[in-house]
Amino acid sequence: MKFLYSKQAGDEQICLQNEQFLHLKVRRAKLGERIDVRNFKDGQNYIYEISNLDKKSAELSLVFKHSVESEELNFSLGWAIIDTKVIEKTLPSLNEIGVDKLIFFYSDFSQKNFKIDKDRLERILISSCEQCGRNSIMQIEIYKNLDEIIKAYKDVALVDFGGVNFENYTQNELLIIGPEGGFSQTEREKISKKYSLNSKNILRSQTAILGIASKVLV
Protein backbone atom coordinates (compact mmCIF):
# COMPACT_ATOMS: atom_id res chain seq x y z
CA MET A 1 0.00 0.00 0.00
CA LYS A 2 1.50 3.33 -1.14
CA PHE A 3 -0.71 5.50 1.06
CA LEU A 4 -3.98 5.56 3.01
CA TYR A 5 -7.03 7.53 1.89
CA SER A 6 -9.04 9.59 4.36
CA LYS A 7 -11.45 12.50 3.87
CA GLN A 8 -9.95 13.96 7.06
CA ALA A 9 -6.41 14.08 5.70
CA GLY A 10 -5.09 17.51 6.62
CA ASP A 11 -6.64 17.63 10.10
CA GLU A 12 -4.24 17.78 13.03
CA GLN A 13 -5.69 14.54 14.44
CA ILE A 14 -7.34 11.59 12.68
CA CYS A 15 -9.03 8.58 14.23
CA LEU A 16 -9.04 5.48 12.02
CA GLN A 17 -11.71 2.84 12.53
CA ASN A 18 -13.41 0.00 10.66
CA GLU A 19 -11.98 -0.68 7.16
CA GLN A 20 -9.30 2.02 7.38
CA PHE A 21 -8.09 0.59 10.68
CA LEU A 22 -7.98 -2.90 9.14
CA HIS A 23 -5.44 -1.63 6.60
CA LEU A 24 -3.12 -0.77 9.47
CA LYS A 25 -3.66 -4.15 11.11
CA VAL A 26 -2.80 -5.94 7.87
CA ARG A 27 0.40 -3.89 7.68
CA ARG A 28 1.09 -4.68 11.33
CA ALA A 29 1.60 -0.97 11.93
CA LYS A 30 3.16 -0.04 15.28
CA LEU A 31 2.91 2.86 17.68
CA GLY A 32 5.10 5.73 16.46
CA GLU A 33 5.10 4.54 12.84
CA ARG A 34 4.54 7.20 10.19
CA ILE A 35 1.75 6.84 7.63
CA ASP A 36 1.19 8.65 4.32
CA VAL A 37 -2.46 9.83 4.19
CA ARG A 38 -4.17 11.66 1.29
CA ASN A 39 -7.61 13.09 0.55
CA PHE A 40 -7.56 13.23 -3.30
CA LYS A 41 -8.61 16.89 -3.19
CA ASP A 42 -5.75 19.29 -2.49
CA GLY A 43 -2.75 17.54 -4.05
CA GLN A 44 -1.05 17.23 -0.66
CA ASN A 45 0.74 14.31 0.94
CA TYR A 46 0.12 14.28 4.72
CA ILE A 47 2.49 12.35 6.95
CA TYR A 48 0.97 11.22 10.24
CA GLU A 49 2.44 9.42 13.20
CA ILE A 50 0.48 6.74 15.03
CA SER A 51 0.04 8.32 18.48
CA ASN A 52 -2.39 5.80 19.95
CA LEU A 53 -3.21 2.23 18.96
CA ASP A 54 -5.74 -0.18 20.42
CA LYS A 55 -7.73 -3.20 19.24
CA LYS A 56 -10.40 -1.26 17.32
CA SER A 57 -8.93 2.09 16.33
CA ALA A 58 -5.82 4.16 15.82
CA GLU A 59 -5.19 7.84 16.41
CA LEU A 60 -2.87 9.69 14.05
CA SER A 61 -1.12 13.01 14.64
CA LEU A 62 -0.04 15.23 11.73
CA VAL A 63 3.73 15.62 11.47
CA PHE A 64 4.18 17.46 8.15
CA LYS A 65 2.83 17.76 4.62
CA HIS A 66 4.20 18.34 1.13
CA SER A 67 2.83 18.63 -2.40
CA VAL A 68 2.42 15.57 -4.59
CA GLU A 69 3.43 15.86 -8.23
CA SER A 70 0.27 16.57 -10.19
CA GLU A 71 -1.01 14.04 -12.73
CA GLU A 72 -2.20 15.27 -16.11
CA LEU A 73 -4.91 12.73 -16.87
CA ASN A 74 -7.23 13.68 -19.72
CA PHE A 75 -8.10 10.42 -21.47
CA SER A 76 -11.71 9.25 -21.19
CA LEU A 77 -13.44 6.12 -22.46
CA GLY A 78 -17.06 5.17 -23.03
CA TRP A 79 -18.06 1.63 -22.11
CA ALA A 80 -21.36 -0.16 -22.68
CA ILE A 81 -22.61 -1.70 -19.45
CA ILE A 82 -21.86 -5.42 -19.15
CA ASP A 83 -21.87 -7.80 -16.18
CA THR A 84 -21.08 -5.60 -13.17
CA LYS A 85 -18.83 -8.31 -11.71
CA VAL A 86 -16.65 -8.06 -14.81
CA ILE A 87 -16.66 -4.26 -14.61
CA GLU A 88 -15.54 -4.37 -10.98
CA LYS A 89 -12.65 -6.71 -11.81
CA THR A 90 -11.52 -4.54 -14.73
CA LEU A 91 -11.85 -1.19 -12.95
CA PRO A 92 -8.56 -1.29 -10.96
CA SER A 93 -6.54 -1.98 -14.11
CA LEU A 94 -8.07 0.99 -15.95
CA ASN A 95 -7.41 3.14 -12.90
CA GLU A 96 -3.77 2.01 -12.71
CA ILE A 97 -3.21 2.60 -16.44
CA GLY A 98 -4.37 6.21 -15.99
CA VAL A 99 -7.85 6.54 -17.51
CA ASP A 100 -9.25 9.86 -16.27
CA LYS A 101 -12.96 9.20 -16.78
CA LEU A 102 -15.09 6.13 -17.53
CA ILE A 103 -18.44 6.84 -19.15
CA PHE A 104 -20.96 4.01 -18.84
CA PHE A 105 -24.12 3.67 -20.91
CA TYR A 106 -26.76 1.08 -21.73
CA SER A 107 -26.32 -0.04 -25.32
CA ASP A 108 -28.96 -1.87 -27.30
CA PHE A 109 -27.29 -5.18 -26.40
CA SER A 110 -26.64 -4.37 -22.72
CA GLN A 111 -28.63 -6.38 -20.21
CA LYS A 112 -30.78 -3.79 -18.44
CA ASN A 113 -30.81 -5.77 -15.20
CA PHE A 114 -27.15 -4.84 -14.60
CA LYS A 115 -27.08 -1.79 -12.32
CA ILE A 116 -23.98 0.29 -11.57
CA ASP A 117 -23.35 0.91 -7.87
CA LYS A 118 -21.26 4.10 -7.93
CA ASP A 119 -20.49 3.92 -4.20
CA ARG A 120 -19.10 0.41 -4.57
CA LEU A 121 -17.05 1.42 -7.60
CA GLU A 122 -15.65 4.36 -5.64
CA ARG A 123 -14.51 2.05 -2.86
CA ILE A 124 -12.80 -0.20 -5.42
CA LEU A 125 -11.10 2.82 -6.99
CA ILE A 126 -9.91 4.15 -3.62
CA SER A 127 -8.35 0.77 -2.84
CA SER A 128 -6.72 0.73 -6.29
CA CYS A 129 -5.25 4.22 -5.75
CA GLU A 130 -3.89 3.22 -2.36
CA GLN A 131 -2.15 0.24 -3.93
CA CYS A 132 -0.77 1.84 -7.11
CA GLY A 133 -0.08 5.35 -5.79
CA ARG A 134 -2.46 7.27 -8.07
CA ASN A 135 -3.38 10.56 -6.39
CA SER A 136 -6.84 10.94 -7.93
CA ILE A 137 -9.92 8.78 -8.38
CA MET A 138 -11.07 7.91 -11.88
CA GLN A 139 -14.33 9.73 -12.56
CA ILE A 140 -17.50 7.75 -13.29
CA GLU A 141 -20.46 8.90 -15.40
CA ILE A 142 -23.57 6.90 -16.30
CA TYR A 143 -25.92 7.55 -19.23
CA LYS A 144 -29.16 5.86 -20.24
CA ASN A 145 -28.13 5.23 -23.84
CA LEU A 146 -25.75 6.14 -26.65
CA ASP A 147 -27.91 9.10 -27.69
CA GLU A 148 -27.24 10.82 -24.36
CA ILE A 149 -23.47 10.44 -24.83
CA ILE A 150 -23.69 11.90 -28.34
CA LYS A 151 -25.50 14.93 -26.91
CA ALA A 152 -23.01 15.34 -24.06
CA TYR A 153 -19.81 14.85 -26.06
CA LYS A 154 -19.00 16.54 -29.35
CA ASP A 155 -16.64 14.05 -31.01
CA VAL A 156 -17.43 10.36 -30.55
CA ALA A 157 -16.08 7.26 -32.29
CA LEU A 158 -16.89 3.57 -31.97
CA VAL A 159 -14.35 0.80 -31.50
CA ASP A 160 -15.85 -1.65 -33.95
CA PHE A 161 -15.12 -4.11 -36.75
CA GLY A 162 -14.69 -2.45 -40.11
CA GLY A 163 -13.32 0.78 -38.72
CA VAL A 164 -10.08 2.43 -39.73
CA ASN A 165 -6.88 1.11 -38.19
CA PHE A 166 -6.47 2.27 -34.59
CA GLU A 167 -2.98 3.50 -35.38
CA ASN A 168 -4.70 6.51 -37.01
CA TYR A 169 -6.34 7.57 -33.72
CA THR A 170 -5.19 11.03 -32.61
CA GLN A 171 -7.09 11.26 -29.28
CA ASN A 172 -9.53 13.81 -30.67
CA GLU A 173 -12.59 11.60 -30.24
CA LEU A 174 -14.18 9.91 -27.24
CA LEU A 175 -13.83 6.19 -27.92
CA ILE A 176 -16.85 4.00 -27.20
CA ILE A 177 -16.43 0.28 -26.47
CA GLY A 178 -19.47 -1.93 -26.92
CA PRO A 179 -20.80 -4.88 -24.89
CA GLU A 180 -20.51 -8.56 -25.65
CA GLY A 181 -22.04 -8.88 -29.11
CA GLY A 182 -20.91 -5.43 -30.17
CA PHE A 183 -23.09 -2.56 -31.33
CA SER A 184 -26.48 -2.81 -32.98
CA GLN A 185 -26.89 -1.65 -36.58
CA THR A 186 -28.92 1.31 -35.31
CA GLU A 187 -26.05 2.40 -33.06
CA ARG A 188 -23.53 1.99 -35.87
CA GLU A 189 -25.58 4.29 -38.08
CA LYS A 190 -25.59 7.05 -35.44
CA ILE A 191 -21.79 7.43 -35.40
CA SER A 192 -19.81 7.60 -38.63
CA LYS A 193 -16.28 7.48 -37.19
CA LYS A 194 -15.05 4.01 -36.24
CA TYR A 195 -11.74 2.45 -35.25
CA SER A 196 -10.76 -1.21 -35.15
CA LEU A 197 -8.06 -3.00 -33.18
CA ASN A 198 -5.45 -4.99 -35.05
CA SER A 199 -6.58 -8.38 -33.77
CA LYS A 200 -7.66 -11.45 -35.69
CA ASN A 201 -9.58 -12.72 -32.67
CA ILE A 202 -12.94 -11.59 -31.30
CA LEU A 203 -12.17 -9.72 -28.10
CA ARG A 204 -14.30 -9.67 -24.99
CA SER A 205 -15.54 -6.22 -24.03
CA GLN A 206 -13.18 -5.95 -21.03
CA THR A 207 -10.22 -7.10 -23.14
CA ALA A 208 -10.98 -4.48 -25.78
CA ILE A 209 -11.17 -1.59 -23.31
CA LEU A 210 -7.95 -2.63 -21.57
CA GLY A 211 -6.25 -2.95 -24.95
CA ILE A 212 -7.38 0.53 -25.99
CA ALA A 213 -6.31 2.13 -22.70
CA SER A 214 -2.92 0.42 -22.85
CA LYS A 215 -2.27 1.48 -26.45
CA VAL A 216 -3.00 5.14 -25.67
CA LEU A 217 -1.54 5.54 -22.18
CA VAL A 218 1.20 2.97 -21.60
Rank of each mutant, 00 (worst) to 15 (best):
L77D: 12
K101C: 15
K154P: 04
Q20D: 13
K25G: 07
L146W: 00
I137N: 05
K118L: 05
F166T: 05
I202F: 13
S67W: 01
C15H: 06
S70G: 07
F21W: 07
Q8K: 14
E59F: 06
I150A: 00
G162D: 04
N52V: 00
Q185R: 04
F75S: 12
K144M: 04
D83Q: 13
E88F: 03
K101N: 15
F166G: 02
I97A: 09
E187N: 09
K2F: 06
D100H: 10
W79A: 13
M1S: 06
N39C: 03
N135W: 03
K193A: 06
D83R: 15
H66S: 13
A29G: 05
Q171N: 07
F104D: 14
K200P: 04
L174C: 04
N113S: 14
N172H: 13
D108G: 12
S76Y: 05
L77M: 11
I212G: 10
L121F: 05
T84D: 07
R34T: 11
K65Y: 09
R188L: 11
E71R: 03
G211S: 10
D11W: 00
F161H: 10
E167G: 06
S107I: 07
E167C: 09
I82T: 14
N135P: 13
K30L: 11
H66A: 02
D155Y: 01
L146Y: 01
N45F: 05
K215Q: 09
Y46N: 13
K25E: 15
F183R: 09
I142T: 13
R28I: 08
K89A: 14
F64K: 13
Q17W: 02
